[in-house]
């Protein structure tokens, strides 16, 4: 059982961003896949603005394009068209290497199936994002120790993922995602594999992080989880059909003109 109430998040302010009115701005973003002679669209004309400190939930039925949008936002996918500004930097003008650098600085990812590496201990899993940065080893060790302490998993640091419960694994996944203090935390169905009690605890954790200033974007099917955020965006067949922050965005899923 995880104990989010005991987790001290006060000492983990996110990376300070310049005062931008928007952390993310998408303009007319589209994504499609080639299928034989035809093309399947998974994202259509997405216009989206996200402010620092937002806790945004992306919802929609299966196949609506939620995860595709999250992958675009995470800079994991670079096959989209349109304009994407992240912290006022034009991602759409960047090459693959620069996008990767930008993501490394600003984004943390939490996955539904945790995606911890089975061969690495808890401590090593948390260290992983730092190992890809030019951070001296002692500093990394200090950061990891700090994260273990904050997430109250010091006692588990030498265990392997297979020795942890699902909730504990996701806790490690979140610790790993925020170890480098990203401004933006992206979570793809973070509680999809968890019992409802554990899910609640994880969501409380997200709320705490958000209150500390981390911008969070989550993909979920759960209305309960969505309630932790302050804004909901709904996708259907690749179209953004609803944005709680902009009620005028309503669009019928069939309206694809």
């Amino acid at each position: 059982m995880i104990e989010p109430n005991n987790i001290d998040l006060t000492s983990t302010p996110p990376n300070t961003l310049p005062e931008h009115p928007r952390i993310i701005e998408l303009k007319n973003v589209e994504r499609s896949y080639r299928e034989g002679a035809g093309q399947t669209w998974v994202l259509r004309r997405i216009d989206l603005t996200i402010r620092p400190g937002d806790f945004l939930t992306i919802m929609g039925p299966s196949g609506a394009g939620k995860s595709s949008l999250l992958n675009v936002l995470a800079l994991l996918d670079d096959q989209w068209r349109g304009e994407y500004w992240l912290t006022a930097e034009p991602v759409h003008h960047m090459n693959r290497k620069k996008r990767a650098e930008l993501a490394k600085r600003n984004i943390g990812m939490v996955f539904q199936s945790y995606h911890l590496l089975d061969d690495l201990t808890v401590q090593e899993n948390i260290d992983l994002p730092l190992s890809y940065k030019n951070i001296p080893r002692p500093e990394r060790q200090a950061l990891v120790a700090d994260a273990l302490d904050r997430f109250n998993i010091v006692g588990k640091k030498d265990l392997y993922p297979s020795q942890l419960s699902g909730g504990q694994q996701q806790l490690v996944g979140i610790a790993r995602a925020v170890i480098h203090r990203p401004a933006l935390l992206l979570a793809d169905e973070p509680t999809g594999n968890l019992h409802s009690t554990q899910a609640k605890e994880i969501m409380e954790l997200f709320r705490g992080l958000n209150e500390q200033g981390t911008t969070i974007i989550q993909v979920t099917h759960s209305e309960v989880n969505a309630a932790y955020g302050n804004r909901i965006v709904e996708l259907r067949d690749g179209w953004m059909v609803n944005d709680s922050a902009h009620p005028e965005t309503r669009r019928a899923s069939g309206d694809k003109s």
């Binding site: 990767a100 490394k104 890809y132 940065k133």
Partner: peptide, 8 residues
């Protein structure tokens, strides 16, 4: 996963 976590 490694690439998603920042590995180039």
């Amino acid at each position: 996963i490694r690439m998603a976590l920042g590995a180039n």
